[in-house]
Amino acid sequence: MKIGLYFGTFNPIHVGHLIIANHMAEHADLDQVWMVVTPHNPLKKKSTLLDDYHRLQMVHLATEDFPKIKPSDIEFKLSQPNYTVNTLVHLQEKYSSHEFSLIMGEDNLKSLHKWKNYEVILAHHDIYVYPRISFEAENLELKNHTKIHLIDAPVVEISSTDIRHNIKKGKNVQPLLHHKVWDYIDHNNFYKK
């Protein structure tokens, strides 16, 4: 089975994340997309990052109606700080029959050469890249690499940061969130302080 790994803090997960994940599951040669919730780094200031469990629960709520999209807490079990290359090794050992790929925006591809052991990642894993409005693929050095696949996905510029700020200001953000995610946020009074 070919799995696309879509990493993020998902603080909160919004419809933009779902649009990208679903597009990759339906239009790239992937069998499933796993939404990998990135744990809180204990060495960093927590600020507005919700507990790992709450962010994972929101991903569960947002994806339960999408059979090709699955939440993953795989990084919760790995020592911190963690690197993507370590997660990939761990997943390959745990699920040896699966083939794992990465899903990222053009902005992340631009800095991929700064990632720990990025050459190892590129040697063993495909990377599916979705467009971002603020970046031009023409300027990306790695875009012609055989493991890089630029996917003509919808350009979605929705920001979890903006959603949190607008909730704090009392603005209506419901159209930007899956209704179950909005209910969970509202019920728990998240992001209001």
Rank of each mutant, 00 (worst) to 15 (best):
L43T: 08
R55L: 11
D107M: 10
L49N: 07
K44M: 05
H54Y: 13
M58V: 10
T161H: 05
I167N: 00
E93A: 14
V33M: 07
N108D: 11
S159V: 09
A153R: 02
R55E: 11
E93F: 05
K168A: 14
K168Q: 15
Y83I: 06
I185D: 06
V37P: 01
E119G: 01
N188D: 01
F100H: 07
K143P: 07
A123I: 02
L56C: 07
L61V: 03
V36L: 02
V37S: 02
Y184H: 12
H90G: 02
Q32A: 07
I127E: 01
N144D: 15
Q92P: 01
K114G: 01
V120A: 08
R132K: 06
N86P: 04
T84L: 09
I158M: 13
I74H: 11
M1L: 14
H124A: 08
P131I: 07
T87Q: 03
N86A: 08
Q57T: 13
I3K: 09
S134H: 09
F10L: 04
H124G: 03
H23L: 05
P42K: 01
P42L: 00
A21P: 05
S97A: 14
H54V: 07
F190M: 15
A28V: 13
S159I: 08
Q32R: 12
I148S: 02
H17V: 05
Y128E: 10
K168H: 15
K171D: 08
N144K: 13
H124E: 11
E26W: 00
H179V: 14
I19M: 10
V181A: 04
K70H: 13
K2E: 12
H40Q: 11
V85Q: 03
F7N: 07
K46F: 00
